[in-house]
Nucleic acid binder design. Sequence first.
DNA 1: AATGAATGAGAATTCATTCAT
DNA 2: TATGAATGAATTCTCATTCAT
Lengths: 204, 204, 204, 204
Amino acid sequence: MSKKKFSRNKEEKIERIYKEFFNLILKKGYHNTSTNHIAESAKISIGTIYKYFPKGKEDIIRKYFEESMENMLESDDLISLNDDNIRNNLNHFITELIKYHKENRGYHLAFRSAIQSDKKLLASHREKTFLIFKDRAQKLRKANKNFEKIPEKGLVEAFVFAYNLVNAILYHHLSIMKFFDSEDKLIEYLLNLVVFSLQYLLKS
Amino acid sequence: MSKKKFSRNKEEKIERIYKEFFNLILKKGYHNTSTNHIAESAKISIGTIYKYFPKGKEDIIRKYFEESMENMLESDDLISLNDDNIRNNLNHFITELIKYHKENRGYHLAFRSAIQSDKKLLASHREKTFLIFKDRAQKLRKANKNFEKIPEKGLVEAFVFAYNLVNAILYHHLSIMKFFDSEDKLIEYLLNLVVFSLQYLLKS
Amino acid sequence: MSKKKFSRNKEEKIERIYKEFFNLILKKGYHNTSTNHIAESAKISIGTIYKYFPKGKEDIIRKYFEESMENMLESDDLISLNDDNIRNNLNHFITELIKYHKENRGYHLAFRSAIQSDKKLLASHREKTFLIFKDRAQKLRKANKNFEKIPEKGLVEAFVFAYNLVNAILYHHLSIMKFFDSEDKLIEYLLNLVVFSLQYLLKS
Amino acid sequence: MSKKKFSRNKEEKIERIYKEFFNLILKKGYHNTSTNHIAESAKISIGTIYKYFPKGKEDIIRKYFEESMENMLESDDLISLNDDNIRNNLNHFITELIKYHKENRGYHLAFRSAIQSDKKLLASHREKTFLIFKDRAQKLRKANKNFEKIPEKGLVEAFVFAYNLVNAILYHHLSIMKFFDSEDKLIEYLLNLVVFSLQYLLKS
DNA sequence: AATGAATGAGAATTCATTCAT
DNA sequence: TATGAATGAATTCTCATTCAT
């Protein structure tokens, strides 16, 4: 009984740590956000942070990465499996990516910084990404005739590429927004870009 | 026998600072590379670094950027002004960007790192980039009928966008290379991507 | 609970920082005394010094000044608010200044030396002095008919002037003591000097 | 021939070093004025400064002190010996002190700072000051009936005291100027203060 | 388990001083 | 003699991490 209470308490604290950390990164940048600062903002003692995340900031990012990737894996919303139309699927995919990007901007900035002193994180990220889209591709191919025609490996790589391309454009300093009046137009452009790229890549 | 404690070769020293700094960034990341570290690696006293770069790391990045961009500006190869064919021009442009990218990979990674904690550097980079392509655009429009038709502002923005898009793809963790057998194929893809994007953007 | 223990510890540490800092200033001068030096002498880590005094030496001096001034002013002896006689008040004031000076001669010499070699510190000290005597003047004018007649600004400036004049004579290298057989005579001289000066100044 | 030229050149350089050094001290304070900065301002290489003043800033002050004290000793203007009126003499004395103070404010600030890391300088200064006024007192007592009545020792000490009192008020942080509309009024106040003090001191 | 005071290595930066030219 | 590039110890300050309570 009290165990559950503690557990809930713990999770709530970890949630607060994530939230404040990524908030602070958005406000001040990764390297100007200290563990002590996170503790202060999350109203948790620095000791507690080091209890949950023994390696500090890097651990926060690493654990968040693992958890969020698991969420992403479990989310059935990302691609609706039963829609035969590839373009619709991609549309859905890109819309979700943009949504995901907006919600996790702080995390992504943190992640970019973290991999600089933690090359394993990058490797781990690539591996997880690959696994996610492998799983996705397998499900899609099982559920859906149109995707069945594309070889699994090609499909996975295409998803990974599309995922990276969209992220690159969204995170990289493209000042891209000023070309588009609305988010719909942005989605449309990205969709066309991805379709074009996939056709190009899958052709060869 | 003479200790050469006081080597007076300013240019050679600055070259060494750049080289060692970017090496260290590639190895350890921007924020794990200290000015004292640079000095040690470049076998130069810390005082000398601050003599040439009074604001430390930030200044090294900034000055290298300006110098390398100036070189790019001065290069007549970048865009051959008298070729009327836009596609040829873009081809040239992208080829140069890739060449440039390959030669400056360390610097670019360093720069990406730096701007994450230095908004000024980002602003300065954007401004400089804009000016470079403004100059380019003006020259092109004067020398060349086809480009004359496109409004200057649109042309500049299109160049900036293309420059950023290509860089994003080259630097962002796209593992893009494995899709292409040869550099020619990569160039071809990027060219098509840029053409597609520019048509898309300039249309609206 | 543990708060008390921390509190006691904290104050003892701060006391040690003050003591060692002023000792070092007397021995080596303000600018030859580094924060690391203070830490070493006080057997406290440099981090702890910056925890209690975030702006380093400047903060140590500033906070010491504030505390010592507060002590001085809180003493009910300093100025008995309900005594109408201005001369009595000044007498009291000067007696307290001398007493304070004698008890803290080392600290005060260090303090003078510090503010003389740091323009910021001097400005900050002047401002603080002004505020302290402004507060004093306001209380006096409320509590006391005779002081009510003097405009607030004039009263404040007169206090500041008197305070500075007495301090200047006590700290500046006047070798003044040898002129006086007893402390009473010194007080009498200073009192007369201040009265003379104030009459002179307030007249115009 | 060239020797003379060199010599003049050297003196002119030293003059420039003094001038720029004390200027910079006035502007930025002693400890924020570096030897390199002096060199830059005086348009002399740092090597040359160290040639003339091997111990840097301290040497500049020490040498200036010696030279300026000699000038002061030789100046017959300071007190006109043949005026019987003590008040006139003091007036002259104070006027000269104020003039001297204004001309040497930078030097005095430097001096205050320098004695903190050079106690010998302070001792030396006190000794020189005493000798100057001893000499002065002796001449006065020979030339002038009124002064003859006062014992030499008392007269010297009184002069020293007056000198220090005026300097204390002028240099110490008195913000005294704002009480006076004109320099004449300041002189009048200081004169009265000194007269009052001397009467008070010589009486006992 | 939770706290947060304390630590100290390490980063950025300055500046008196040296010495090859 | 004059120069000023080069030096590096010393300084200020930060922050990840530990550990006594």
